[in-house]
Nucleic acid binder design. Structure first.
Lengths: 219, 219
DNA sequence: CTATAAATGTCGGAG
DNA sequence: CTCCGACGTTTATAG
């Protein structure tokens, strides 16, 4: 990884056109050839960047970074204040926990959290328009489609609505009702869900993990 | 901005739980207190980060970064290979061109691109659930709601569907038909749009800009 | 490779 | 502050 602090101006021409006037910034060149330009604010997002795979053409005062799609980043270096290179090696990578997949797993193991007497038919139930997160049966024998999200927003309601429409046409499954399950559900999503007869269930991830642990300790 | 290259391990506990095993990485601390941790690949996204506003507690071998929401990033520094600080000043910021707003502007000026005889009623037509990008009238006098996107996906169809449903209830506007206009339209969006009687129009941004230029040169 | 959904999305604007 | 939609979204994954 090469770190250059320099007064520079930058132009990007690709999916849009963008220009950065002259200022002091960090230019980061990574081992895969990718380049990003950071100002002294915002942790996450570079001002400008070029994702790998890409190629750097380095001439005295100008770096030109191009990719296969013809996008181009041009950095005019006016004054270099710092320039160092570091060998970082390959990163072992990130271990995550608590994303949607895991929440779905926990709910599949304890569907009663979503409703009294609910039993799992299967996870990732396949349909023509994509898999339904959880397909369940309630105590009356009716089918229940569950959409699992970390955060419940309008998208999730729309997605579930499409599944319900499709599943409802299947005589083996009909009638099918819907549940949107999420750690947090936005008001607008609640309103839309209510309007479509979809039940909203907020799920406490930590509590759910606790239940799992408790059930495991019973053995 | 402070740049530290160090062998470190990192834990994040917040919206999810994540762990980075020991390896050499770049730790970037920005003037606003935000922190990001970069490996030697991927230009855009850091392995881990904490967005501002946040607070850093620095003890000898451990940095603890917390925010108001109680999220925490903990960096265990095992071996520091580089440590430098740079004064970057305030960045003048980015000038962009070519995004949805501009596409909408161009289509508002030349609605006939979307359909023979189409005339603009108004841009950003306000409704209870948000503004309709373009409201037009076709040659038969019927109202046409246009949703403008850079890339047409299912979201755009759903959004337009909600507008059409609402606008269709207004006796002054009904009947209302819909057009999804985008530089590129995904197959799934096309299928859903067709199913709902929404017309899809792909727009060539550069050509449209050319038309604008040509019309200007007529004066 | 394309297409699709998730993301610690982030960011900006309107209310 | 919350809500909402755009983003050069980026990123991962399935087909």
């Amino acid at each position: 990884m090469r770190l250059v602090v320099a007064r520079c101006s930058v132009d990007y021409v690709g999916r849009l056109t963008a220009h950065l006037p002259s200022a002091v910034r960090l230019v980061m060149v990574k081992a895969d050839g990718s380049v990003s330009i950071h100002a002294d604010d915002r942790a996450y997002k570079p001002l400008n960047w070029m994702s790998p795979p890409c190629r750097i053409e380095e001439s005295p005062g100008v770096w030109r970074i191009v990719n296969k799609a013809g996008e181009e980043l041009r950095i005019a270096l006016e004054e270099i204040l710092h320039d160092s290179t570091h060998d970082l090696g390959v990163d072992p990578g990130l271990v995550k926990d608590g994303v949607e997949a895991h929440l779905q797993e926990l709910l599949a193991a304890t569907p009663t959290v979503l409703g009294e007497g609910l039993t799992l038919i299967r996870r990732e139930y396949p349909t023509a328009i994509g898999p339904v997160d959880l397909l369940c049966r309630d105590s009356t024998g009716a089918t229940v489609a569950v959409e699992v999200k970390r955060r419940g927003e309008i998208d999730g309601v729309e997605q579930l609505t499409r599944y319900l429409e499709l599943l409802g046409r299947d005589p083996l499954l009909a009638p099918v009702t819907g549940i949107l399950a999420a750690q947090e559900i936005k008001p607008q999503a609640r309103v839309l869900a209510a309007d479509r007869g979809i039940r909203c269930v907020t799920v406490d991830y930590d509590a759910l993990r606790g239940i799992e642990r408790d059930e495991l300790t019973l053995f």
